[in-house]
Computed example of a mutant assay.
Amino acid sequence: MIFTYNKEYVGDVLMVIVKDSKGAALAAERKGQVARVFLAETGETVAWNIFTVSDWLTIKGNGQVVLSDKDVALLNTVLADEGFTESLINDSAPKVVVGEITAAVPHPKSDHLTICQVRIGSESSVQIVAGAPNVRVGLKTAVALPGAMLPNGSLIFSGSLRGQKSFGMMCSPRELALPNAPQKRGIIEISGNAEVGDAFDAAKHWDN
């Protein structure tokens, strides 16, 4: 679940993205200060818009924002008061973390993609299909997990590339809008002493 807010360009609206619509036809219903966006064919909710959200919460920052469990509980009260029966589920875990590539094999249907196994915690790994030329076993890099929103507004969801499942994206410095990002292609290379699973911190993990 992605919470995103940009008062300057969008207005006082909290957008809550629940799932990837995958380009399917959408419909919406509004009750009071809340709008639900759903798949036109199935009725499954994909997003919420909560208008004049500052009536209830003080939100700091632009782009993807992190809300406390207390904030989300309050928003669920707002949804219920407006007549909706669904509720929001908070996930405050970091969405861009330090990961380490533990295995890498060529994609059988591509001459430039690599299927990687990436450790993102002490007991957690994911498969990510990458096209970066500097992918290699042992490399630590920044991993955007499903539920992340990049600085350019791109949303990260699970998917597949040429038939191979991919659960996130390994990021380049430019994709993370890091200062002095090189123009050449390639994922960010993080020092070997960085702790796998830690939230990516530009001040700590990027020294260019």
Rank of each mutant, 00 (worst) to 15 (best):
I2V: 14
F3C: 07
T4K: 13
T4D: 11
K7G: 00
K7D: 06
Y9L: 07
G11N: 03
G11C: 03
D12W: 05
V13W: 10
L14K: 01
M15E: 14
I17S: 11
D20I: 14
S21I: 01
G23N: 12
G23L: 13
G23E: 11
A25E: 13
A28V: 03
A28G: 07
A28M: 12
R30K: 14
G32F: 00
V37A: 14
T42I: 05
E44T: 10
T45S: 09
I50C: 04
F51N: 07
T52D: 14
T52V: 10
V53P: 11
V53W: 04
T58Y: 06
I59C: 02
K60N: 12
G63W: 15
G63A: 15
Q64M: 13
V65I: 07
V66G: 09
L67H: 06
S68T: 14
D69P: 12
D71W: 12
N76A: 15
A80C: 01
A80Y: 02
G83H: 09
G83C: 10
E86F: 08
L88T: 00
L88Y: 00
N90W: 00
D91M: 05
A93N: 09
A93Y: 05
K95G: 04
K95H: 05
V97F: 03
V98P: 00
E100G: 12
A103P: 03
A104K: 09
P106E: 13
P108D: 03
S110F: 10
D111W: 07
D111Q: 13
H112E: 02
L113I: 05
I115S: 02
C116G: 02
C116V: 10
R119E: 05
R119L: 03
I120Y: 07
G121P: 09
S122Y: 15
S122M: 15
E123A: 15
S124A: 11
I128C: 02
I128S: 03
G131E: 09
A132M: 03
N134L: 12
N134W: 09
R136P: 02
V137N: 10
L139A: 11
L139Q: 07
K140F: 04
K140P: 05
T141L: 06
A142I: 11
V143C: 10
A144S: 13
A144P: 02
G147R: 01
P151S: 15
N152I: 04
S154E: 14
S154H: 08
S160H: 12
L161F: 08
R162P: 12
G163T: 08
F167S: 05
G168N: 04
S172Y: 00
S172E: 01
P173A: 10
R174S: 07
L176C: 06
A177C: 05
L178V: 07
A181D: 09
K184A: 11
R185I: 08
R185G: 09
G186L: 12
G186F: 11
I187F: 12
S191R: 07
S191I: 02
N193V: 07
A194Y: 12
A194K: 14
E195M: 13
D198K: 15
D198N: 15
D198T: 11
